[in-house]
Design a protein around this nucleic acid. Structure first.
Lengths: 147, 147
DNA sequence: GTCGACTTTTAGATTATGTCTAGACCCGGA
DNA sequence: TCCGGGTCTAGACATAATCTAAAAGTCGAC
């Protein structure tokens, strides 16, 4: 459990608490793009008496305070991303895994030329398949909607 | 009710029916980006005995047959878009309205340089605010999550 | 240390969205 | 007319997310 976390929450105007730290410890460091239910599942494994409402409250609080970004990209679910700097996303259509693509890897031109819009955020969303062998194993994020 | 619709459904391997035509008549011509519930509401106004399941089945059928695109962009909702050609999207953060941006208005470079990905679809998603007066009034699509 | 105001957390109810199911309906062909 | 496949329906079910009211915790003043 990272001690800096307490500091980080305080800096963002969030009163630390055991529950919030437990959520922060997972969600602020993960490379997965977890949904709220995923966060609940993970954190619940370590802090079993933590309720669903607390997880949702905490995640929404983090988003409001700017510690997390909320993304609406994946299979109809809201997911969270602790990488605050702008970046792009790749979504694997067969697995649902969301991967971050560095901002510098792509270039978007023409945004400034759009008249009548005040653009605050731009991102490229790509869909397709990951090729070749598993370069970065264990990067499993999304389930393919088990049903 | 557009007569070409029957033809269009047949061409895509869909057996026309009164219900499907009613859904198609709205969803294939709208410039809104309606959610399933929105479609239900609209079509229900004209064909009151149409059930929720039929609307969902029909929309999913249209997506499977390539008549509609399913977008996952807006406030946690899946919305549908009859514009099949590639294009970008602008989302007004204050109203939730989704607007189409022509493909040619922006240029994305660097996609081909990504190694290890088989990219099948690329789109730029921009968020911000619409400036100036209402140039195209009545373009209301998303509600601002009334609560 | 104790008090009281305030914040946080909790379990469970509630709402919203989407899917499934079982049976009714419709229509064309034998 | 009867059969069979595809379609439609109402309502049950499943899941995600939020709300509520009350309990528990925190912290400064005394």
């Amino acid at each position: 459990m990272n001690l800096d976390l307490v500091q980080r929450l305080r800096e963002n105007g969030i009163q630390p608490s055991a529950q919030r730290l437990a959520v922060a410890d997972y969600v602020l460091t993960t490379e997965e793009h977890p949904s709220a239910e995923k966060v609940l599942e993970r954190v619940h494994a370590r802090v079993p008496m933590l309720s669903r409402a607390t997880v949702y409250n905490t995640l929404n609080l983090f988003v409001a305070k700017g510690l997390l970004k909320q993304l609406v990209l994946a299979e109809g679910r809201v997911v969270f991303d602790p990488r605050l700097e702008p970046h792009h996303h790749f979504i694997d259509e067969s697995t649902g895994v969301i991967e971050d693509i560095p901002w510098g890897a792509l270039k978007v031109s023409g945004v400034a030329g759009l008249e009548g819009y005040d653009i605050r955020d731009t991102m490229v969303v790509m869909r397709g398949r990951k090729l070749g062998g598993p370069r970065k194993p264990g990067r499993v994020t999304g389930k393919t909607r088990p049903r």
